[in-house]
Design a protein around this nucleic acid. Structure first.
Length: 427
RNA sequence: GGGGGGAUACCAGAGCGGUCAAAUGGGACGGACUGUAAAUCCGUUGCUUCGGCUACGAAGGUUCGAAUCCUUCUCCCCCCA
């Protein structure tokens, strides 16, 4: 398998430095991608980079996943219009541990010569003094060169300016590349297209410092067909951490991909072969409502990220919540089974005693539970016909609910709109 | 150092003494249609015990009444040096 060819037909390739393909065709090469620990979980936006590393390894090369214990302390100005807040060391350390753990599940760390390897740039920066850095690294790159970068230019032109710290970022990242090149024979750095400038600073450093050769390859930034940002839902980013985004919600996110996007996403986020993908596309074009692509996409990624068992559960929940099964079906399940079905959606507990006395709709949804952030909002949406309990639309905000409404004497199923489910448990 | 302009809801941006919880556009959310798609159309978009309450950078003041006028402060932009 040819790595660059693979990225090309999948539509992932954005830019590649001349000579890179030749280098990779010569035999096993080492390449890396950096991940800055800005949060304690990666999100779906990082998956492109993860997939790039997976392809890289599958093509027989040795992938390095770099976590930015050092760069994370500085803050990458790329694509940011304003200065970033620095994270405290505690937070950073915590994020680092979590991100590292997530990355580990995607690559093969035990495949002989091309085993994946995890590195942390803090390891080579922690004892690097400021003076040494400006003499050994800063000396080789001119400020003129650094200022010509888009990420810097934009900020200099904009209103907010840029601190020296962020200005330095590209040098820090550039040194990472130099270090890996020098000590791990790592000749290629990859990343999203917004990283081109930073990566090239690295290749430049390798060239000027040692006259060596290093290469760069960037991937397309994922966008939705309607131009809006990829990876966001109404409740924010879609995370890989199941505690932040449940496997059910994760599965739903991919299943809801629009037709226009599904064709490109299935190439980017799955390892399915060209033949299989093209066959599925034909199938989908013939019967669009079957959403063959979305289902395959959601299945593949959910399994990769959360595993087979969680995928099965997500399917079961989805089938019930969006299928034709009536709400009565829940009566046939025991409590544990009901809870399992609703595991991926927000759960709330209320007091059975209070419910027996009768609670009106707005209190139930906004005061006793946090289905809505305020009663006003709950009321408005009820009036707009957007809220259901046990699949029945709530007619007025004053509707009273009591123990008679409970399913299995314990549960209420609330819906905000069609897609947002909530389980209310009365105990 | 001198002079000028500005800060309004998630964002952009009107309003320049009462009729302003604040036009308009975008976004977001909901409804209809559909395929849990796209497009389109419609509605909602500060909180509330529905009496009110809090809000137009911050703090004071004038006034029966302020987003609108005055004072001070903070931040931003532009021009001159």
């Amino acid at each position: 398998m040819n790595f660059v060819e693979e990225l090309r037909w999948r539509g992932m390739l954005h830019d590649i430095m001349p000579g890179t393909e030749e280098l990779l065709n010569k035999g096993m090469a080492s390449g890396y991608i950096g991940f800055d620990p800005t949060a304690d979980s990666l999100h779906v936006g990082h998956l492109t980079q993860i997939m790039t590393l997976i392809h890289f390894q599958r093509a027989g090369h040795k992938p390095y996943a770099l976590v930015g214990g050092a760069t994370g302390m500085v803050g990458d100005p790329s694509g940011k219009s304003a200065e970033r807040n620095l994270l405290s060391e505690d937070v950073l350390q915590h994020n680092l541990t979590c991100v590292k753990k997530q990355l580990e599940q995607f690559l093969n760390f035990n495949s002989g010569a091309n085993s994946a390897q995890m590195v942390n740039n803090y390891d080579w920066f922690k004892n690097f003094t400021f003076l040494d850095f400006i003499r050994d690294v800063g000396k080789h790159i001119t400020v003129n060169y650094m200022m010509a970068k888009d990420s810097v230019k934009k900020r200099l032109e904009g209103d907010t300016g840029m601190s020296f710290t962020e200005f330095t970022y590209q040098l820090v990242q550039g040194y990472d590349f130099y270090y890996l090149w020098k000590h791990h024979n790592c000749t290629l750095q990859m990343g999203g297209s917004d990283q081109w400038g930073n990566i090239v600073t690295g290749t430049e450093l390798v060239r000027r410092k040692e006259g060596g050769e290093a290469f760069a390859l960037t991937t397309q930034l994922i966008k939705k067909a309607d131009g809006t940002k990829f990876g966001k839902t109404e409740s924010g980013a879609v995370w890989l951490d199941p505690a932040r985004t449940s496997p059910y919600q994760f599965y739903q996110f991919w299943l809801n991909t629009s037709d226009a996007d599904a064709k490109s996403y299935i190439r980017i986020f799955t390892l399915l072969s060209r033949e299989v993908i093209e066959a599925m596309e034909a199938e989908q074009d013939a019967a669009p409502h079957t959403r063959v692509l979305q289902k395959a996409l959601a299945k593949d990624i959910t399994i990769r990220v959360h595993g087979e068992t969680e995928y099965e559960k997500a399917i079961k929940s989805s089938d019930f919540l969006f299928g034709n099964t009536g709400i009565e079906f829940l009566n046939e399940l025991n409590d544990a089974e009901v809870k399992g079905l609703f595991e991926g959606v927000p759960n709330f507990n209320i007091s059975l005693e209070e419910l027996k006395a009768g609670i009106n709709a707005t209190d139930l949804l906004a005061a006793k539970t946090a289905v809505f952030p305020s009663k006003g909002e709950a009321k408005k949406m009820i009036q707009g016909g957007g809220v259901s309990i046990n699949r029945n639309k709530i007619a007025t905000a004053d509707d009273i609910f009591n123990a008679d409404n409970l399913i299995n004497g314990k549960f209420l199923v609330a819906q905000k709109g069609k897609k947002n489910y909530f389980l209310i448990v009365a105990e």
